[in-house]
């Protein structure tokens, strides 16, 4: 939800399977420390300023921890946010398989295929227990039209980059022409191509869906 006045406020929603480290990633970004055990200063809504491409943005981050089974309440969160970060753990194959269902839920609720989504794989510091390779994550993200990055909330690896990239994606979705100051004829063709690509992706998604089922 954008503010009526300030266009630099961006609402982000962090989603994922239970226990993948959503809260840890968020707190690492907000407070610059890893939550080894419970911290009394935890809050459910977090707000932080960040500098992305010479512009200051105020990030309003929602953490969906504990919302694993509450699909209806989660829909409200989805409607109130502009950007989404889907988190899975590289040490858990099942959390990786859930990414598609989260994306489908987002698309169904917002009734749009063009949603700014960032997909991240957490816990890369536990490389000995890795069950999902980087290439698998990258392929799925490309197939579903999402950006991909691997992070470690413990070591603060790529945590800043994740949120910066998410802001870029959201801004790119909102104002595509501002980033491409070209002719109208040139701008129309990419739009048509992107729609075709999205349709192909949807067919692929359905195929993968049936294959998974």
């Amino acid at each position: 939800m954008t503010s009526y006045k300030n266009n630099n406020v961006i609402s982000l929603c962090i989603m994922g399977d239970g226990g993948v480290g959503k809260t840890a990633v968020t707190i690492q970004f907000i407070s610059n420390h890893f939550v080894y055990y419970y911290d009394p200063t935890i809050e459910d809504s977090y707000r932080k300023q960040c500098l992305v491409d010479d512009q200051v943005y105020m990030l309003d981050i929602l953490d969906t921890a504990g919302q694993d089974e509450l699909t209806a309440m989660r829909d409200q969160w989805i409607r109130s946010c502009e950007g989404f970060i889907l988190v899975y753990s590289v040490t858990s194959r099942s959390s990786f398989d859930q990414i598609q269902f989260f994306r489908e839920q987002i698309i169904r609720v917002l009734d749009s295929d063009d949603v700014p989504i960032m997909m991240i794989g957490n816990k890369i510091d536990l490389d000995d227990e890795r069950q999902v390779t980087f290439q698998e994550g990258k392929d799925l993200a490309r197939c579903l039209g999402m950006s991909f990055m691997e992070v470690s909330a413990k070591n603060r690896t790529n945590v800043e980059e994740v949120f910066n990239e998410t802001v870029r994606i959201v801004k790119r979705k909102e104002d595509p022409q501002s980033h491409k100051p070209s002719k109208d004829s040139d701008s129309k063709k990419p739009l048509v191509n992107t729609s075709k690509i999205i349709k192909k992706i949807n067919t692929r998604v359905k195929q993968t869906k049936t294959s998974i089922c």
């Binding site: 503010s3 459910d44 929602l62 953490d63 921890a65 409200q76 109130s80």
Partner: peptide
């Protein structure tokens, strides 16, 4: 923002 406050009851239950 006020929207951040309004969503807090929904976040509190789980």
């Amino acid at each position: 923002d006020i929207s951040s406050f309004l969503i807090q009851p929904i976040q509190r239950l789980p």
